[in-house]
Amino acid sequence: MKQKIITLKHVAEAANVSVTAVSLVLNGKICQIPESTKERIWEKARKLHYRPNSIALSLATKKTKTIGIIIPDITNAFFAQSVHYLQSELTRHGYVSLLCDSEERFDKDYQSIELLASRQVDGLILALSAESFLESNQQKIVELLHQISIPHVFFDRCGIPGKTVVSVDNQACGAKVIRYLLRNGHKQIGVISGLLSLSSSRERLMGVREALSEVGLKLDQHQLITTTFSVESGRLAASRFDNKVTAIFAFDDLLAYGVMEALRAKGVRVPEDISLVGFDDLLFSALLGCRLTTISQPIKDMANKCCELLMAMIKTPFIAQSIRLPGELIIRDSVQHI
């Protein structure tokens, strides 16, 4: 038997008030209704198991209370953790989220934005794939975002002028790692970067070069490998450095895990034979046999700030902001002084 749908009218009749009064109270609107009447309305609504009709509400308010989130890889623990904090903060603001995983593909980013726009989300949180930031693809993304005209904030990565983005201060973190390695006697440092279409990779690399230049050093081409963020990419990259490198800075922890595995397979010890630093401070970084020195990103703070900016943007458009939060160098066991 189909369950009876309880409407505002049923609650109004039970509370002996108008439908308008019920709507004002249950939607939290400012009104002159006495507190005793408000309590009676809430009591009757609970007793009748009233549930608001989200479709009717969205038609009336032109808001769906829904936010679309696009990430490049849900299997990457950094993005999985980011989604956890983003969804938690959105819930606190009274929003639900629709999550899309682009699998590091431009076409899926584009399709996901179109899909979320068709669902009439109130806002978008975008951590797009490296492919989407290639020049030709980036222009298509910019045009699509202009066309759909939905408030949006970029998370972790962007590089598109005039867009609001929240990230860690990648340049400062890159420099911080290199200065730490230099203090420990390392001058021949190998760097494994993400693809340079990503602003996060470019900024970390700028920090690397900045810190090296402070002591009269530079990063030679043979000391830099660009690749995708994955364990397998780290394995492959590790074999491409010559024996002159005394330390490796991997631009994320997944890469560092792959490097550590490849070195172990060759009988090379971390940190006795070569030092290693990662980036992200994922859970397993503190649990490895040789605990990984790495940069900890303030993921919760980044997620909270991202949601805060998006909520403000939904209410009133404002000039784009670039928010960069400080990261922390977590010193563990994987760097040795030489």
Rank of each mutant, 00 (worst) to 15 (best):
I323V: 15
S239G: 02
D122T: 00
E131H: 08
G185A: 10
A172R: 04
T294Q: 09
L254S: 07
L236W: 05
S199T: 01
L283R: 02
K315W: 01
H222M: 09
D169T: 08
E328F: 07
T316Y: 12
A14H: 08
E261K: 11
C100E: 13
R235S: 14
F249C: 05
G162N: 10
I33Y: 10
A12F: 12
A238I: 07
S18K: 06
I274Y: 05
N304G: 04
H146Y: 03
A56K: 01
Q138E: 15
E89L: 00
A12S: 14
S200H: 04
E35N: 09
T228H: 13
N76D: 13
A312S: 15
T227F: 09
Y95D: 07
H337F: 10
L98S: 08
I148P: 01
K2D: 15
R157L: 11
A175P: 08
S239A: 09
P72L: 10
R264F: 15
F318P: 01
V17T: 11
V177C: 13
Q32N: 14
P298N: 04
I74F: 02
L287T: 14
H186F: 14
A15V: 13
V83H: 01
Q111H: 09
S199G: 09
D333V: 06
R40M: 14
P317N: 05
H49E: 15
F154Q: 06
L182K: 00
E203M: 11
S200A: 15
K300A: 15
Q81S: 11
T91S: 12
H49Q: 14
L325T: 03
R105H: 09
V277K: 05
R332I: 10
E272H: 11
M311N: 12
S58M: 03
V277Q: 03
S239L: 10
R46F: 05
R209D: 12
L283H: 10
F133W: 03
L145K: 03
P326I: 06
L276W: 03
D280M: 01
A60H: 01
